[in-house]
Design a protein around this nucleic acid. Sequence first.
DNA 1: CTGTTAGCGCCTTCAA
DNA 2: TTGAAGGCGCTAACAG
Lengths: 340, 340
Amino acid sequence: MMASTIKDIKTETGLALSTISKYLNGGNVRTENREKIEAAIRKLDYRPNEMARALITKKTRTIGFVVNDIASQFSGILLRYTGELLRRSGYSMMICDSAHDPGLEEKNIRFCVDKKVDGILLLPVGRDSENLESAKRAHIPVVLLDREMPGSSCDCITIDNREAARRAVEELALHGHVRIAAIHSEEYTGYERFLGYLDAMRARGLTVREEYIFSGPMHSTQLGYEGMKKLMALEDPPTAVFMTNYEVSLGVVMAMNEGGCRCPEDFSLIGFDELTLALVVRPRMTLVAQPMEEMCQESVRLLLARVDGGMDTPPRRISIYAGIAPGESVRELSDPYTAA
Amino acid sequence: MMASTIKDIKTETGLALSTISKYLNGGNVRTENREKIEAAIRKLDYRPNEMARALITKKTRTIGFVVNDIASQFSGILLRYTGELLRRSGYSMMICDSAHDPGLEEKNIRFCVDKKVDGILLLPVGRDSENLESAKRAHIPVVLLDREMPGSSCDCITIDNREAARRAVEELALHGHVRIAAIHSEEYTGYERFLGYLDAMRARGLTVREEYIFSGPMHSTQLGYEGMKKLMALEDPPTAVFMTNYEVSLGVVMAMNEGGCRCPEDFSLIGFDELTLALVVRPRMTLVAQPMEEMCQESVRLLLARVDGGMDTPPRRISIYAGIAPGESVRELSDPYTAA
DNA sequence: CTGTTAGCGCCTTCAA
DNA sequence: TTGAAGGCGCTAACAG
């Protein structure tokens, strides 16, 4: 009734433990013995005990994924891709949700370390690389996904947030927009993208009006909703709005619908992330499409390379190009100064 | 440089291994020795090796969560609650995403079994309890969350889907609605809720018109969007729409906004799940609020009871009452037959 | 209460 | 290629 062990295979086949072990680990065994072993494994439904194996090899074949917010759609999709990639490489994934709490993030990393994961994928909440201390002490590699942490010496996969944002706002300007608002979060990605907005405005010599900037501590539907409400109520409202993530865009669209405004007639919009909203809303939103699958591939590749290869090579920072997926949410403005 | 072991504590303190082990497991030790041990632990930054521990105790203190769709907001929130609850009980959570694929679900369960998890929480994709075979053979308890599986003999936590749906549709009827449409998925929850719709219609003696029913294989924004488009195009459209989940509601709202329809003036709406949408859309949606936190508490409680207590007691099926959160998306219809 | 002695299931030297 | 012996880090009997 108990799960069968390698010993049972031994008594079943009459071979030595080490022979069986070698077979299990892909070594060369006489064909006749191989067949015996395979038959016994099938018969007893034997599966190696990963715990015992890990005790010796010091490899759990488990990766910890510490995620800023498990309930966000963006994270969910990253988790799906990475989980699948890891599974294909024989790794399992232990997910810990930091729920936007930097303190919890630190605990989660420590938890992963205690569980002896082989490596950690981190989609960070905070900017404080002190949170990584426990992993560093235990020599467990960490790869940062989607967001950098200034003080850290980890590999890091991001998109070129600032540059992508700059191009997005440039797109608005190219269509003749001058009164361009921005709704952004103060998190890493939100702020980087806001900097890109400023870059574009400056490069074009456009005025950055204070009342056109709306920000909040983190990306949320709430933020977009409230921001757009405020912008719509302005005496001299913008003609275009730049939004720094998916949830924010969702909130903006809700606010516009509620206020009876149309896109792009009343407001042109450009945002980030090609998720559900983008597939459903008409007119189709123009937005920066983050190559999420590629981000996951790169981060898993880097992490597994560290797991196998070690920490002696210098940290790599990969910034992936994020292009703009065309849509119809930006309208041509011939004379911006008379536009509503 | 290597992580310190219990042996290091032994040489540091001069005590026997078993004394230290006993201390670690909460046994009684002479105060003077306790202090020695504690000092050594701090000094060497010792943390017990969970692998070695698991090898003897046969408990990994890890729970596997096999989830139908990690990218859905509903699942995300369930994962957040359960993860937190488990962490507080000293358990880690290994999440496997089935991505709506029953075949992958079976693989995921087998994966959890191989990883020797102490128990499995399953939010199922399919209805086929054969997927649970590997867990059953290994005597690993499984608790079903949110959805039943007919043939299984597992504990199961659901809400009273059918009854809650019946009450929701009854609510529409009480406001004078007669031409009531339903957009539902063919998944377990979607279908149960559709049955509740039929119950209510029948009880009221209302006609169930074929053109008022729209369904699809699974819950999605797409489903709601397309369903609502179709309903709006009808010659004789419904006055109210019942939607079987959150994503569907989102799609419906999008379609209405796009078509220039207002809620509740043009269509009354009632749906499920108090998520982001519910917090942002105005007028506030009337909907069945699933007690997600309670569902998680119950399922974790049941699962840990199985982990400790064993499988000899008969399976428990808990159905939690889901109330209707009031909103303003259902309007009073005095004369339904003349309403648009 | 403390220490000694065996293992948990597996991998990895070493001889043969 | 194969087999015997030792040990990974820890807990669980015992005996003291």
